[in-house]
């Protein structure tokens, strides 16, 4: 008696479900056909690197969205990761130690966010805003308001290769992004913790009834998010050869937008890692293609903004559906 009604309901989601996917294919095809260099090997390599950082940030942010929260400090933490990496390299700290220290700082920010939002129950927007101000302050302080250029003489080749090297022909940032992606895919989709996180985001009351510790789940998600932001920051500074206090700024919005774009794809109105990565791909391809076409930065940012608004309008309306379901 049920399957019939089920199919009926499912088909109604077609546009929102496959709209994003169709958009991705259309954009790729259009660029591939009309922008000569787009499909070249070197451009694809560049594209892979370009999407890697955003993909890493978006993966972590997806976990935060899954538990029904929000993190607007990611951009500032990305910058912080970069600045810190650059600073430590310039001070001739062994690369391994520098990397660990930077990642730890990312984790610390995640812990603070998670504690404030998860345990103190302060609205995520407020709490993560506060930490982002602190991170920004640290960024500007460290470089006295400007970027920290990594001096070629003192830095290790290993660190520089993080951003621009390759591993069996594949750019290292992309390898890292892939690893992060796989990690979160397992965490969110194939472990009991992932299932619990989804429950917390889906129906907190039910989750409590199921004996799940809502606070701990939220805390965990924020910690992972802080960690991924720091990873992205390290790669970014290695690639740019400098740590910039604002290089990560754009990631806050882009990652949120990417996750939102993905919301319409899977689990019907829920954040999902595949969806987020799809959103990242769309952004990456859009930006890359527009650059190749010689579209100026300013027009890019306008077009991207309009695209995000459109995606969020479709996804946002659907995401609201889930709240009043039962």
């Amino acid at each position: 008696m049920s399957t019939e009604t089920f199919n009926l309901k499912k088909s109604g989601n077609f546009l929102a479900r496959y709209g994003t996917f169709t958009a991705l294919i259309l954009i790729t095809l259009a660029f591939g056909l009309f922008v000569p260099k787009f499909a070249s090997f070197s451009n694809i390599m560049t594209l892979l690197v370009q999407i890697s950082m955003l993909s890493i940030v978006a993966s972590g942010l997806t976990a935060v969205f899954v538990v029904g929260e929000l993190d607007i400090s990611t951009g500032a933490v990305v910058s912080l990761g970069g600045i810190l990496g650059a600073y430590l390299m310039n001070n001739q700290i062994p690369p391994a130690a520098a990397i660990v220290a930077t990642l730890l700082v990312g984790v610390v920010f995640g812990v603070v966010n998670g504690f404030i939002v998860g345990y103190l129950r302060i609205p995520a927007l407020l709490g993560t805003f506060g930490t982002s101000v602190i991170a920004l302050g640290l960024n500007f302080w460290a470089g006295n308001g400007s970027s920290i250029r990594i001096s070629k003489e003192v830095t290790s080749e290993f660190f520089m290769s993080l951003g621009s090297g390759t591993f069996v022909g594949i750019p290292i940032p992309f390898v890292v992004a892939l690893m992060v992606f796989i990690f979160f895919l397992f965490l969110l989709e194939h472990t009991k913790w992932g299932l619990r996180m989804y429950s917390v985001g889906g129906n907190q009351e039910a989750a409590t009834n199921f004996g799940i510790n809502n606070r701990r789940m939220k805390f965990t998600a924020f910690v992972f998010c802080g960690l991924t932001a720091a990873i992205a920051g390290l790669l970014l500074s290695s690639r740019l050869g400098a740590g910039s206090p604002i290089a990560g700024d754009a990631y806050t919005l882009d990652a949120i937008a990417a996750v939102y774009v993905g919301v319409s794809m899977f689990r019907e109105g829920e954040p999902h890692l595949f969806g987020s990565v799809l959103g990242v791909l769309i952004f990456g391809i859009l930006v890359n293609g527009m650059r190749l076409m010689g579209v100026g930065y300013e027009v890019q940012s306008i077009l991207r903004g309009i695209f995000i608004l459109g995606a969020v309008a479709i996804a946002g309306n659907r995401a609201q559906l889930r709240v009043k379901l039962f």
Binding site: I72, I256, Y297, E298, S301, I302, G305, I306, L309, V312
Partner: peptide, 20 residues
């Protein structure tokens, strides 16, 4: 029906583009 944080964040980016 878009969260005003997201909407204004995006509009802000668009306006930056317009200024430039």
């Amino acid at each position: 029906h878009i969260s005003s944080l997201i909407a204004t964040l995006t509009i802000g980016a668009i306006i930056d583009g317009v200024s430039l």
